[in-house]
Amino acid sequence: MNLTIDDRFEDMLKEAANIGSGRAVNSLSLLLGEPVSMKPVQLKVVSFQELMSEYGDKEEVMAASLLPFYGDLEGIVYLLFSQDDINALAGSLIGRSVTMKELETDPYMHSMLMELGNILSGAYISALADFTSLNMQTAAPSAAVDMAVSLWNEGLTYTQETQNEVLFLESEWKSASLPGGTASGRFLFLPDAASFQVLLRSLEEKIND
C-alpha cells in the first residue's frame, strides 16, 4: 500500500485531527482549570530507520497512555509525557509532584495516568467521530512507564502491518501557568492502514458535498 497522500487530503486529515485534539485540549483545560494551547497538527510519515536514529539512545524514562479505538476506523490514540509534564499535571490534579517510579508501581498513580489518557483520547475520538460521521468506539485504556525509545517503538509499530514506515497525525499541547510548572505533551493519532483509506473516503465525500 502506498502512504503518499495528496495535498487536499492532507489538509482535510489535519483539519479532522485539529477537531479531535481541540476537544481533547479543551477537556484537559477543564480538568486543570488553566488554559491549554495547541500547535497546529502535523501529518508525519516516519520510517523505522528515522525512528531509531532519533530515539535509539533515549533511555530517558517517559510515561505513555494508549487508547485503542475500533468501529469503522481502528487504531490507537497515543499520549506521551516526560517527567516534567507529569510533575506539572500532577501538581494541578493532586497537589504534588509524582516520580516515574510512582506512576509505574503505585496503582493509584498508574490509574491517574490511564484516566488522563482515557479523558483526553476519548474526547479526541468522539470529536473525530462527530466530524466524520464514522462509527468509532474506544476500548479500555492502558498505560506504561518505560524508556523513551521503547515507548516510541511500541506505539508506532502497533498499526500498519505491511510498511516499514508509519503515518500518523501529531498534536502538541502546552499549558504554561500550572502551579507545578509548564506541562506539554503529544497526542499521536494512529489509524491502521485500512482505516486510513476509510477515513480518506469519508473526507472525500465531505469535500464533494
Binding site: D146, M147, S150, L151, T157
Partner: peptide, 23 residues
C-alpha cells in the same frame, strides 16, 4: 546499530545493538 525491521551482520567482532524492544 540494527534498526527495526532489519538485520545486520558483524564480521569482525564488532558489537551489535538494537534499541527499545517492546513486543
Amino acid at each position: 546499530r540494527v534498526g527495526m525491521s532489519d538485520w545486520k551482520a558483524s564480521t569482525d567482532k564488532e558489537q551489535l545493538r538494537t534499541s527499545g524492544l517492546g513486543s
